[in-house]
């Protein structure tokens, strides 16, 4: 394995690590805002990989996809934060372990 040049594998590994950290954040944290941040982190790891592949393949299309991801992320954050605010207004807490109205 050649450590002298940065190949696409390096980015894959970095992206996987960041994605996993984000996933662990979603799984482990109970704070809704932190969970949202973790989701953002996961999205960014995906974006990073898209850009890396775009560079690797010499095709700008991957970068265009990033725009879409960012748009979706922005919308998600807007709606998600509104949800958090709404939950907070009723529960006075943003601990998701207390949000279980859907319990069967």
């Amino acid at each position: 394995m050649d450590l002298t040049t940065v190949t696409i594998e390096w980015y894959i590994a970095l992206s996987a690590i960041l994605f996993t950290i984000g996933a662990l954040g979603v799984l482990l944290r109970r704070d809704a805002i932190i969970i949202f941040m973790s989701v953002e982190l996961m999205l960014n790891s995906a974006n990073l990989l898209l850009v890396a592949f775009a560079h690797h393949l010499g095709d700008a299309t991957g970068q265009v996809l990033v725009f879409f991801v960012m748009t979706v992320a922005a919308a998600e954050v807007a709606v998600g934060l509104a949800l958090i605010v709404a939950i907070f207004q009723s529960k006075k807490s943003i601990d998701i372990s207390e949000v279980n109205l859907l319990k069967g």
């Binding site: 482990l28 944290r29 704070d31 805002i33 958090i84 605010v85 907070f88 943003i94 998701i96």
Partner: peptide
């Protein structure tokens, strides 16, 4: 929200 103190892990 004044939610600086997060809910922990």
């Amino acid at each position: 929200l004044g939610a600086e103190e997060s809910a922990g892990v």
